[in-house]
Nucleic acid binder design. Structure first.
Lengths: 231, 231
DNA sequence: AACGCAGCAAACGTCCGATGTCTCTATAGT
DNA sequence: ACTATAGAGACATCGGACGTTTGCTGCGTT
C-alpha cells in the first residue's frame, strides 16, 4: 500500500514545509489526482484522512482548504484516541493527569485575571445547584477545569488536558462519586481549588489540584474494580 | 457529509463498546458496505481514517483487523500533529515538556533498574562518541530520553512525551546547540541526569531534567528568533 | 447606482463495476 | 511428512457517471 499513503505524506509534507500555508486552497480533486499520479479515489482517501486530523477543511461545492493548524484543532484527535483506550490503561492516563493538572493549575494561579475568577465562581455555583443531575455535574466539572487550564494561556496544554479528560472517563468517575455519595466532597475540592486560585497561591493551588485528581483516580479505581468483579 | 463520517463513528463506537475487541476481523469491504448502507468507496474512506489513527490494521490480501488499541499505537498520531504545529506554538509545546519531563524523570529515578541504568550509560557513551555527527546526536538524544521515560512503566506517558518531542523539534534544537557550540554542555546535562538517576535521587533527577529542558527551550528560542530575523 | 434573484459552472459526495495484486490455505505430488 | 502449486478471497486502484451543494455572475428591478 503505497500510493494513497504517499499522497498523504506528500500533502502533509507540503503543508509542513510552508508550501501550503494555512488557508490555502488545494487544487480540485481531479487535478490533484493527476498531479500526484493516482486516481481520484486515492486522493479522496488521502484528503479524508487529513480532514479527520483537522489538517484539511473540505467544503462541499467549494473546495478543500488548509486549516489554521491551531493546536486546538490538531490535538483534537487525542480525545478520540483516549476514548478508545482500554480500561487497564486508564490509570496510566490518570497518572499523567496527576502530573499535568496540578502544575497547570499552579500556573493558572499566577496568570488568572479577576474576570476569570468570577467566571469560575459562577461555574462553581452552577455545580452546587446541579448536585442532583449527574449529566450537568459532568458538564460543569468539565467547564471548571477547562476554564482554569485555559487561563494559563497555553492552548497546547489546554488541548492536551482536555483530550486526557475525555467525556467517558469523566462520566465513569462521576458515576463512582455519586454512587459512593462523595459528590459533595468533590464539589468541596473544587471550592478549595477556587479559593487557592483566588488568593493567587501557586503552591496551594497545585496541592489542591493534586488532591482532587487523586480523589478522581481513587473513584476510578473503584469503578474499574466493580466492573472487573461483575464481569 | 454524513455517510462516511457516520460509518467512521459507527465503527469506532462498535470498538469502544467492546463489540469489536482487539484482534477482531472486520467483514470484507463489500459486506461492511451493505451492512452500513453505503458504497464500498465510502467504507474504504472510513477504514482508511481509522487505519491512519492506528485503530484498524488493514492487511492486503487478508482482511481488516482491530489493533491492540495500545497507547503506543493510538497516541502515535500526536507526533504527526506536533510536527505540523506552527513555529509560534512550539514554545507552548516546550512549556508542556517543561512540566512533564522533569516529573517523569523524577518518577524514573524511583523505578529504574540496574539494567536500565546500564543501557542509559551505554547511550551516553555513544552520544559522546558521536559529538561531531548531528544526525547521530539527535538519534542518541531521542534514545536517551525515551529510555528514561519508558522506565516509568507508563506507556501512555511515554507515548505522549515521545509525541511532544518530535524529530523536527529535536533537530531544530540541536541545530542551535551545534551552531552555538553548546553541544558539549548539553551532553554534560545528560550526564547529570544520568548521575541523579543512578543515585536514585528523585528531586535531583527532576531538577536536572528541568535544567535540561530549559536549555533546549532557550536554544529553540534562539533558532526561532534567527529564523524570524532572516525571514 | 444599488439591490435582489435566477441560473450557471465548479467542486465535492456517492455509487458502480472492472481489474490488478497480494495472502492464505488447501490440495496434489513427491 | 514435506513441499510446491493452484485457487479463492480480500484489499488496491482505476475510470466514469450522476447527484448535491456552493459561490458567482449577470440580468432585471427599483
Amino acid at each position: 500500500m503505497a500510493l494513497t499513503d504517499d499522497a498523504i505524506a506528500r500533502i502533509r509534507s507540503m503543508i509542513q514545509s510552508g508550501e501550503l500555508p494555512p488557508g490555502t486552497r488545494l487544487p480540485p480533486e481531479p487535478q490533484l489526482a493527476a498531479q500526484m499520479g493516482l486516481s481520484r479515489s486515492g486522493v479522496r482517501e488521502a484528503v479524508k484522512v487529513l480532514e479527520s486530523a483537522r489538517v484539511l477543511d473540505v467544503r462541499r461545492g467549494d473546495g478543500t482548504y488548509v486549516t489554521s493548524l491551531a493546536p486546538r484543532l490538531l490535538l483534537q484527535g487525542l480525545g478520540v484516541a483516549v476514548e478508545l483506550l482500554r480500561d487497564d490503561t486508564l490509570l496510566e492516563v490518570m497518572e499523567v493527569r496527576r502530573i499535568l493538572e496540578p502544575m497547570a493549575t499552579g500556573l493558572a494561579a499566577l496568570r488568572m485575571t479577576d474576570a476569570d475568577l468570577d467566571e469560575l465562581g459562577q461555574i462553581l455555583e452552577d455545580m452546587r445547584a446541579a448536585a442532583d443531575d449527574a449529566e450537568k455535574l459532568i458538564q460543569f466539572d468539565t467547564a471548571f477545569h477547562h476554564t482554569v487550564i485555559a487561563t494559563t494561556g497555553n492552548e497546547t496544554l489546554t488541548s492536551l488536558l482536555d483530550g486526557l479528560s475525555g467525556r467517558t472517563l469523566r462520566a465513569r468517575v462521576w458515576r463512582g462519586l455519586i454512587e459512593g455519595n462523595a459528590a459533595h466532597k468533590t464539589i468541596d475540592e473544587h471550592h478549595a481549588i477556587y479559593l487557592a486560585l483566588r488568593s493567587r497561591d501557586q503552591l496551594l493551588a497545585q496541592a489542591s489540584a493534586l488532591i482532587h485528581v487523586n480523589t478522581s483516580e481513587a473513584w476510578l479505581r473503584t469503578v474499574l474494580a466493580a466492573k472487573t468483579a461483575e464481569g
